[in-house]
């Protein structure tokens, strides 16, 4: 069932929802951008509909709500420990199809990969329901259609914000019917983007020999001088799941502290450092090669049905060096063509 809510009605429904749910949405932080006077849009707990930035795609992904950049896993005192606690309140997240689809990919890594379920991820994910946000084609970095992540039916409510403050809502999940009882029904179906300005064809690496030749291809050298290995692309990525853990000691007593999980990045120094101080991927080109092949080959090799990318384009948008992931994919395709023709 669908409704058109006036601004007052929408505010009232939101206030009702707040009684039961923690609600997260893209939120604009004025002047908190990389450059002076630029804003940043990231996911935050919101208290009213006016807190929701519905026009601009968030600079940082929705995944931060479910797998935050930093979280305490457990606390220890001498030989005892206890797990960190999270609220039991259910969560509602305003999200676009790319971010919702990204959770399918994240869930594969966190929950079940290698026969292990990450309970810290699971306990968050289980609380979440989605409010699908209307996406009017995204921006010029988006390529969700190419990645087949432009549509989703994983949502409880679908909304479209209107300029006049009114809100179109489709209620898909009957648990939410009672919030709209007083309101007259209308016809409204969420629309999905079916075309992006940017189109990408993910190259197919047909065998191991091609893969090895691609790894050795000179195309990666370009990044040694261009990429600064800051990791902004992976922090902005909707699907990246890498993290590291650190035991934090409270004060001067080494018996008391917490184990903390912090998001990590294959691009930053120290990511591949092992005992003895050896690093496997030292150059920016090697790190970029790892990221691209991990996303556009390795993941699919293991999980078959998709690549590890939803085409949100945030990596390209956040790269301070203007390295475009789609152009890099095109370069990969060209390199594979050369390899297949026997030119390299």
């Amino acid at each position: 069932m669908s409704y058109r809510l006036t601004q007052n009605e929408a505010d009232a429904v939101f206030a009702e929802l707040l009684k039961k749910f923690d609600i997260y949405a893209p939120h604009r932080h004025v002047c908190a951008g990389r450059y002076s006077d630029d804003d940043i849009v990231k996911y935050d707990k919101v208290e009213s509909l006016s807190d929701v930035e519905y026009k601009k795609k968030s600079d940082y992904p929705m995944k931060e709500v479910i797998s935050p950049i930093q979280q305490a896993l457990f606390y220890f005192t001498e030989d005892e420990y206890r797990e960190s606690k999270v609220s039991s309140r259910p969560i509602l997240i305003f999200a676009r199809p790319c971010d919702i689809n990204a959770q399918k990919i994240q869930a594969r890594i966190y929950a079940g990969n290698g026969g292990f379920t990450d309970s810290y991820y699971e306990r968050m994910k289980d609380r979440v329901k989605y409010i699908l946000m209307d996406c009017e084609g995204g921006d010029d970095n988006c390529f969700c259609v190419s990645m087949h992540t432009n549509k989703t039916d994983n949502y409880s409510l679908a909304v479209k914000f209107h300029e006049d403050g009114s809100l179109f809502v489709k209620v898909k999940d009957q648990d939410f019917d009672n919030y709209f009882q007083e309101i007259k029904e209308i016809e409204f179906e969420p629309e999905f983007v079916n075309k992006n300005e940017l189109k990408v064809t993910v190259p197919v690496i047909k065998d191991h020999e091609t893969l090895n030749k691609l790894k050795a291809h000179p195309m990666w050298n370009e990044f040694n001088s261009r990429c600064i290995s800051c990791g902004a692309c992976t922090i902005a990525c909707s699907t990246c799941t890498c993290f590291t853990t650190k035991d934090i000691i409270y004060g001067d007593n080494p018996e008391v502290g917490e184990r903390r999980r912090i998001e990590s990045s294959c691009q930053v120094d120290g990511y591949t450092t092992v005992a003895g101080g050896i690093s496997y991927r030292k150059t920016a080109g090697e790190k970029m090669r790892f990221k691209m092949l991990h996303k556009f080959h390795d993941y699919k090799e293991r999980f078959v049905d998709s690549d590890m990318c939803v085409g949100c384009g945030r990596c390209t948008a956040r790269c301070p060096q203007f390295i475009s992931i789609t152009t890099t994919l095109d370069k990969m395709s060209k390199a594979i063509e050369e390899i297949e023709k026997g030119e390299v």
């Binding site: 002047c31 908190a32 990389r34 990231k42 940082y60 912090i262 301070p320």
Partner: peptide, 27 residues
């Protein structure tokens, strides 16, 4: 694993916000 700052000698250039990959520094 966190940053410590000698606030008295900070010149307020904002370079930390410019380079941070995660917006951990903001103006």
């Amino acid at each position: 694993g966190k940053i410590e700052k000698d606030t008295c000698c900070c010149v307020g250039c904002g370079e930390c916000a410019r380079v941070c990959p995660a917006s951990a520094w903001t103006r």
